[in-house]
């Protein structure tokens, strides 16, 4: 892992996959986030509507992203976010790819999600710079792990 730490890999833009792993076409938030992340200098990969957790992991790995940002508004975050983490683990990529969550997530569920490795879990109304600095932090960690 040695030479990686001295590389200025932080010069390279953060690659982030933005997805809503639900049967849900409401994409207002996704487009606002996509634009905000792009304007913050990130390369945003968006796979379109209705991706399954399997598709999300496949894309994250093929695109070698630093961060997966998943959002759900339908209340199924405990099952679906868990599924995403399980698939990531199966591909031996957890730790290499950070997972950040968002959406309609009650306060009580946040610690449970953090425990399985999904951090952030921001609700609507969170200031964009808070979300972005959290993502930057996690991306740095993921990159340090990769190399």
């Amino acid at each position: 892992m040695g030479s990686g730490k001295n590389q200025k890999s932080s010069e390279r833009p953060i690659r982030i996959l933005l997805a809503k792993p639900a049967i849900d076409g409401h994409d207002r938030g996704i487009y606002v986030l996509a634009r905000a992340f792009r304007d913050a200098g990130m390369e945003v990969i968006y796979p379109g509507l209705l991706p399954t957790p399997e598709e999300i992991i496949n894309i994250a790995i093929d695109e070698d992203v630093d961060v997966i940002a998943i959002s759900l508004l339908n209340g199924s975050h405990m099952t679906i976010f868990k599924k995403v983490m399980e698939l990531l683990k199966k591909r031996h990529a957890e730790g290499d790819i950070a997972v950040v969550g968002g959406g309609t997530i009650p306060e009580a569920d946040r610690p449970k999600l953090e425990k399985i490795g999904v951090t952030g879990n921001y609700g609507p109304g969170t200031p964009m710079n808070e979300i972005i600095s959290h993502i930057r932090k996690r991306a740095e960690e993921a990159r340090a792990n990769k190399w």
């Binding site: 639900a22 049967i23 849900d24 209705l50 399954t52 339908n74 209340g75 199924s76 099952t79 679906i80």
Partner: peptide
């Protein structure tokens, strides 16, 4: 239901009756 996916379809897992 909105997306024409039956409740016994694997894709509907976790979303039945939620919204």
């Amino acid at each position: 239901t909105l997306y024409g996916i039956d409740c016994d379809n694997k894709r509907a897992e976790g979303e039945i009756g939620k919204c």
